[in-house]
């Protein structure tokens, strides 16, 4: 197992370098001059030149590339060019919104995997029953609907038109991370206020992911419960609950590890649409705003971070395979 960790981690390094390279050159090819965006139209060429010099934009491409690589290693992605974060280091800009994304995506990921797995296992043990069909319909629905549509609908039912719909006041805030003046609340008050705001975006993201996970787990468990070792487990006199939850689930979750690898990057990238609908100031929103503002150092830094998250997600999935499946541990160990 230790050698599996070591080898997989080593292979991630060239991948990260590749990501950094690709991101840099792709964005260098993009049209537009940051300097002209930074100053009002009609600024004198001397002023623009001076800005380009101070940003290092007048260096040859290769020099800028190596500076960028060096920056990636040290976590220095330059300074923001947008008026909003005037000359703030990109790292600080990102670190300013990252906790919001980590909170939203982390809670949603956790809930989605717990809820999705439970629903999938439950369905698999009742294959073909009415409740299985109903749940299949639900999971297909949440899996297929556009996340922004679901976000808007949930916002309507639980916030904007909540009272008209439910008949009594059910209210979850549909925007922001905290109430105005939340700073003056006690610590617990602030936690509750944050959770209150988290509810709708988290519910949306959880439902969207849990739908896919449940369908995946159901299929996987249906395959597993037909296996000979399940029959062996029953024949030795184990109660059905332990047959399913011990012998079944451990095997049924092996393919689900792939999904974990695929969903992991949202921890760093956030989800653009859901963050926009609920005005949740996370990475997704930051990236879109930065693209629109041609704040290319932030876009570069953010994109590199996403790429790194994908690499790390896959690395984690590979390692998790080794944890849950001893055959893989050996094959690569």
């Amino acid at each position: 197992m230790r050698s599996l960790v070591f080898r997989r981690t080593l292979t991630a390094i060239p991948l990260l370098l590749g990501v950094a390279t690709l991101v840099f050159f792709a964005l260098s090819l993009a049209p537009g001059d940051p300097a002209t965006l930074f100053y009002p139209i009609g600024a004198s060429p001397e002023v623009l030149d001076q800005l380009r010099r101070s940003l290092g934009l007048d260096d040859p491409l290769l020099v800028r590339y190596f500076k960028w690589l060096l920056g990636c290693l040290t976590g220095d992605f330059g300074v923001s060019l947008s008026p909003r974060y005037y000359q703030l280091p990109v790292r600080d800009v990102i670190l300013g919104v990252l906790p919001n994304t980590l909170l939203l995506a982390g809670c949603s990921l956790f809930l989605a995997f717990v809820v999705g797995s439970l629903v999938g296992v439950f369905q698999a043990t009742r294959q073909g029953s009415l409740i299985d069909s109903v749940l299949s319909g639900c999971t297909l629905f949440f899996y297929s609907v556009p996340s922004f549509w679901l976000a808007v609908m949930l916002g309507m039912f639980f916030s904007v038109k909540a009272e008209a719909f439910w008949g009594w006041p059910v209210f979850f805030p549909a925007s922001g991370v905290a109430s105005p003046g939340a700073d003056s609340l006690s610590t617990w008050g602030q936690v509750l206020d944050r959770a209150h705001h988290l509810f709708l975006p988290c519910l949306t993201l959880t439902l969207v992911m849990a739908g896919g996970i449940a369908r995946y787990v159901r299929t996987s468990m249906l395959e597993v419960v037909r296996q000979d070792y399940i029959r062996t487990a029953r024949a030795k006199g184990l109660p059905e609950s332990r047959v399913i939850l011990k012998h079944g689930l451990r095997n049924g979750l092996i393919p689900v590890v792939t999904l974990f690898g695929a969903y992991f990057p949202i921890l760093l990238s956030g989800t653009v649409l859901i963050e926009y609908v609920f005005t949740w100031p996370g990475m997704g929103r930051l990236m879109v705003d930065s693209v629109l503002a041609r704040d290319y150092p932030v876009v570069l830094g953010g994109t590199f971070l996403f790429g790194a998250a994908v690499v790390v997600g896959n690395l984690l999935a590979d390692l998790l395979y080794g944890v849950v499946d001893p055959r893989i541990r050996d094959a690569h160990g």
Partner: peptide, 21 residues
Amino acid sequence: IRGGEIAMIFQEPMTSLNPVF
């Protein structure tokens, strides 16, 4: 009774044991 009174062994030893334990 299963396992305690009447025990069974199966045709396929390759697949009758759980691979993850």
